[in-house]
Amino acid sequence: MRLVIARCSVDYVGRLNAHLPSAVRLLLVKADGSVSIHADGRAYKPLNWMSPPCVLTEGEGLWRITNKADESLLITIEEVMHDSTHELGVDPGLRKDGVEAHLQVLLADRPDAIREDLTLVRREYETGIGPVDLLCRSGDGASVAVEIKRRGEIDGVEQLTRYVARMVEDPGLPHPVHGILVAQSITPQARLLATDRGLATVTVNYDALRGLEPSIPTLF
C-alpha cells in the first residue's frame, strides 16, 4: 500500500471525460495495482479511481494509469508532500454471520435432528411465492415444510403459514402437509401464533449440530 499526498490535478479519459482541478489529495496505490484519488471527505469513496488490471507509469510530474479498455487516468503532480509504502500482508477478510444458511446445510444432512422420522425430499422447494428451506417427508408419508430461522419470530410463522397454504393447494405433493418452524430460539409470541395456525416449532442447538459426529462410520 503506497500513500502519496500531493497537490495534483486529474484527468480521466475514457467512456466519459472528467477533470479534477488542482488541489491537495490523497493518492492510494494498492498491491493489486489499483490507483484511487481521495479528498478529505466522502468516507470510503474516492473522487476518481482505476480498478485493476491496470498499469501505472510514473513520469516527471505525471502519472499515467491505463487499463485494458484503453481508458486512462492522468494525474499531474505539482508538489509531493508525503510518499510512503507499507506492507499490509494478506487480509483475513470480512466474516459475515452465515448461521442461517449453515443451519440449512446442516439440517438438510440431518433432518432427523428436527424430528426423528423426517427424511429430506429437497432443499429450497419452490412454492410459487418463494422457496421453503426444506421439504421433508415424515414417517407416515406426510409432507413437511421446514422453515429455518436464526431467531423464530412472528415473521417466520407468517412466512411458513403462507408456504403451507400454497403447498396444500399443490396436488403433486403427498398430503397432508405440515409445517415446522426451526430456530435456535423461538419467542413465546411466535410459539403461540404457530400453535394457533397448527404449525409445530422446534429449537435446535447450532453448536451441537456443528459438532455432531458424522453419521458415516470411519475406518479409524
Binding site: 498491491a31 493489486d32 506492507e87 500482508g89 494478506v90 487480509d91
Partner: peptide, 9 residues
C-alpha cells in the same frame, strides 16, 4: 489465486 501481496506478484 491472484496473488495480492506485492512480494508474491
Amino acid at each position: 489465486r491472484t496473488a495480492t501481496a506485492a512480494q508474491q506478484q
